[in-house]
Simulated scan of single mutants.
Amino acid sequence: MTTTPGPLADSVRLAWPAEAAAVADLQRRVWSSELSAEVAATVLGGVSAEEMTQAWGQAISRPPKARYRVLVAIADARVVGFATTVPGQDPDADEAADGEVQEFAVDPPARHRGHGSRLLNACADTLRADGFRHARWWVGEDDQALRGFLGAAGWVPDGSSREIGTDDEAVRLTQVRLHTDLADG
């Protein structure tokens, strides 16, 4: 008797180089849906889909640093989310002890199905496996949905904030830094 395999379970794993275009496309969709129309047009107008695909391909196949990881959330054999984990990038970070979630996105139609939670747990597990004891995450000051999601998972503000944006200052975003202890995982 031959059995037909069932649907693949939703999962998170390291990204494959062949998924660079899917990650770039997802990032563009998330930016388009989460940023104001003006900010999205400015940010996305400055980089083509092809350039983003090349950048993600490089990040996946030849990471810029040791312990730089690109993770993908998979559902029905397609990328529905991605995240990057890296050594802490801030001047006050201890690169040996402080890791950082640098990018994190879940496709809007795929939200509220557990992909974000799986991706968040995989980020913590990956940072822990890479030897980090603490994790940091810069989030938009006004992104109450993400801050609430992270707060429920034990991430808390550490009092740091920053402003980022385009070189011409047409786009300015204020972020706050959250942190968590990875030893509790």
Rank of each mutant, 00 (worst) to 15 (best):
S36G: 15
Q89M: 11
Y68A: 13
A124L: 11
L150H: 01
A49Q: 08
S161M: 10
A122W: 00
W138A: 08
P108E: 05
R111V: 02
R133Y: 07
R147K: 12
S160P: 04
A22T: 03
A66G: 12
Q58S: 12
R78E: 11
R118M: 08
D94G: 07
L14R: 13
Q54I: 04
E51M: 01
A40N: 12
H115C: 07
S36W: 11
L44V: 05
P91E: 14
I74K: 03
D143I: 06
T4W: 11
P7E: 14
T84G: 08
A49P: 06
R28S: 08
E169P: 00
W31L: 07
F104P: 01
V101G: 02
G148V: 11
D92S: 10
P7K: 10
A124W: 06
P17F: 05
L146K: 00
V39N: 13
L178M: 10
T84P: 09
F132L: 04
Q102W: 09
R133G: 15
H179T: 12
A153S: 12
L150P: 03
T126F: 02
V70T: 14
V30M: 01
E163G: 03
L26C: 04
M1K: 07
A49G: 09
V79R: 01
V70Y: 09
T126N: 00
P87K: 00
D168F: 00
T180A: 15
T3S: 13
Q27K: 02
K65C: 12
D90L: 00
R29N: 02
M52A: 12
A145T: 14
T85P: 09
D98H: 09
T84I: 10
L26V: 08
A66V: 13
S161H: 14
I164W: 12
V139I: 09
P109I: 01
A24M: 06
S160Y: 14
V171W: 09
D130T: 01
W138E: 10
H112R: 15
P7Y: 07
E141N: 10
Y68D: 15
G148L: 09
K65S: 15
D167V: 04
F132K: 03
K65A: 15
V176A: 01
G99W: 03
A83C: 07
I164Q: 09
D76L: 02
W155K: 03
W155R: 01
A83W: 09
G185L: 15
P17K: 02
T126P: 06
L35D: 14
M1W: 10
D125K: 04
I60Y: 06
W137E: 06
A97Q: 15
Q89C: 04
S117A: 14
D167E: 12
L26F: 02
E50P: 05
D90C: 03
L120A: 04
C123M: 01
T2I: 14
V47T: 13
I74P: 07
G154S: 11
T84Y: 09
D167Q: 06
Q58Y: 07
A110W: 01
L14E: 14
G151M: 06
V86T: 15
A18P: 00
A110Y: 01
L119W: 03
P7Q: 11
G88L: 07
D94Q: 08
V12T: 08
V12I: 06
T85K: 03
W137S: 01
Q175F: 13
